[in-house]
Nucleic acid binder design. Structure first.
Lengths: 336, 336
DNA sequence: CTGTTAGCGCTTTCAC
DNA sequence: GTGAAAGCGCTAACAG
């Protein structure tokens, strides 16, 4: 920067201002500086800038898995919005493990992110302490935590499945099973899946169904393969079953393919519904009835909220904890 | 760090050494320091460390899209390997646009990454200049560039489809079409798709087929939906067609689902093959014949190579350009 | 609109 | 095995 300043005949401070844009630099001076920058091939060093200004320009984002397009879309939404502020994203994958989440947060805090966005509302005690100590904005997404750490952008996973149950009952189904939604295990737990199963169970109780059946599928990530095996078990264990709700569209798809193999008509012999409105569900045959939640919207809303929260923190006017509820809808398709 | 040093009765230098691990600090001193760290809830500031040591601990990774699990797996592989060195990843999505790629690289270089990993072998002139100026290790992946920037971890996309063609011919198919693989367009081009189409065309010529037919699908990302429409066009335009190779498993899946709808038996009426060995292809009905390339392995190999290259750069012994070829294989399943 | 001064919080380097 | 001094490259804060 000193080289650029010398070449443009100004001080480094003026170069710094010119490069940050907008602020109080005469147009002619700016032009001269930009020319010097180009001629020298100068690239601003944000590391030094971050140290000096105490603004890293980073936000940490933690999601359970790489291979779930729902979470990827949320990250995309966050990234789109925050890149407008020049904020970059540090992504971490927890593999559905809360211990791994804590480890990642520990590592990431060393980069002094200006905010942290996590998935879900269940975390280790250590994670909560780290985040409180860090004294930066925190957003929990994809769920409505009972005791939020900071801000929330989510929805009730249980409510989505209650709605799905209501819809299936309305369509005349009475013997409805549920696939997925295990409790926590050694390798991590699928909290959102468990919530969805709770929604199923609450609906069974509330709607006065006399029978119900849950087929667990093991540790997350719940995948296509699990759905195929689970649907066979469901039908074997409960031959009267008329419909199955899967914890996600992936096992729903696996279940449908397995039904094709066994020549069980879908929805004739068994209706199948999923969760997440994955691309696959729109083009599968039959198309899959599902719960749609805009994952990108979760990300965009979280991004905007984080942007506001960071501005608040910078100006010593912290944003009071916000809670944004993302709407969901039931999309009925051919599989029910 | 000064607070920790005071509490432990040492200098900041000793704290720094203790925190970096391994190096010359008496065990007892280290214990004392760690206790102080815990008591104070101290978190090391890597930003300051990076500035001082001139080692950012970052590597930039650029991939075309969030929503392609193949690329995500490659990132996962890179991240797994590099996290062992304590290196963090800055991911950028180019949306298949070379201009966007250049913009992202410009932005990321401001963080002084110690290396850059890009997807594909075609880039803007500006990108090449930026990377050369930066004088850091560069790895191109997912292709075998004619004129590499630095290192390469990839495979020949054309060769994979030539192999697929040979296999289909061996199985008795003669009238084989190709879906996808457009040339560049306004919104970016799918270079790997184009390479695959070239492989198809080379095979058509080399194997002495008299007829061939390509159905383009438009700008990437090529998706499930495109496959459904394209297969209809293929059959309408070339009623004799016996088999179709798709540029990826996603359109192959879409094509198969569309065939189910129209009651065109797969592979009876039309055999369909894809590329990428996506999870969907293993569980779809019928299961999909595909080209398998280990995406995670591309990532792991690139990660290891980057690790070596960075160590080389640090010790002033630059690693000469390496070229790693990732093997591929044809997986025959029910769809052919 | 521009410049000067004084750090940001660490690590390098050299000395002991 | 440990410490003291001197920055890394930028920007905040204030002055003009």
């Amino acid at each position: 920067m000193a080289d650029v300043a010398r070449r443009a005949g100004v001080s480094t401070m003026t170069v710094s201002r010119a490069l940050k844009g907008g602020r109080s630099v005469k147009e002619e001076t700016r032009t001269r500086i930009m020319r010097a920058v180009d001629e020298l091939g100068y690239v601003l060093d944000l590391t030094a800038g971050a140290l000096s200004s105490k603004r890293s320009g980073f936000v940490s984002v933690l999601i359970p898995s790489v291979n779930n397009s729902n979470f990827s879309e949320t990250v995309h939404g966050i990234s789109d919005v925050l890149s407008e502020d020049g904020t970059q994203i540090l992504v971490g994958y927890t593999d559905y493990s809360k211990a791994q989440e804590q480890r990642l947060i520990e590592t990431m805090l060393r980069r002094r992110p200006e905010g942290v966005i996590v998935t879900g509302g269940v975390h280790t005690e250590g994670t909560r302490e780290l985040l409180e100590q860090a004294a930066i904005p925190v957003i929990e997404t994809w769920d409505m935590p009972a005791d939020p750490i900071g801000h929330v952008v989510g929805f009730s996973n249980a409510a989505t499945i209650e709605d799905m149950m209501a819809r299936l009952l309305f369509r005349g189904y009475r013997k409805i099973g549920f696939i997925g939604g295990d409790d926590g295990r050694a390798n991590g737990s699928d909290d959102r899946g468990r919530e969805r199963r709770l929604g199923y169970e609450r609906a069974v109780a509330a709607l006065g169904l006399e029978t119900s059946h849950v087929v667990p599928v093991g540790d997350p990530p719940v995948s296509i393969e699990h759905g195929g095996r689970a649907v066979v078990r469901l039908v074997e264990e409960w031959p009267d079953v008329e419909a199955a709700i899967c914890v996600s569209d992936l096992p729903a798809f696996g279940a449908i393919m397995e039904c094709h193999r066994r020549e069980w008509a879908v929805p004739g012999r068994l209706a199948i519904a999923g969760f997440g409105d994955f691309e696959i569900s729109r083009f599968c045959w039959p198309t899959i009835t599902t719960v749609s939640v805009s994952c990108t919207e979760i990300g965009r809303k979280a991004g905007h909220l984080m942007s506001r929260a960071i501005k608040g923190a910078r100006s010593e006017k912290p944003l009071p904890p916000q809670s944004v509820v993302i709407p969901h809808s039931i999309i009925e398709r051919e599989s029910t």
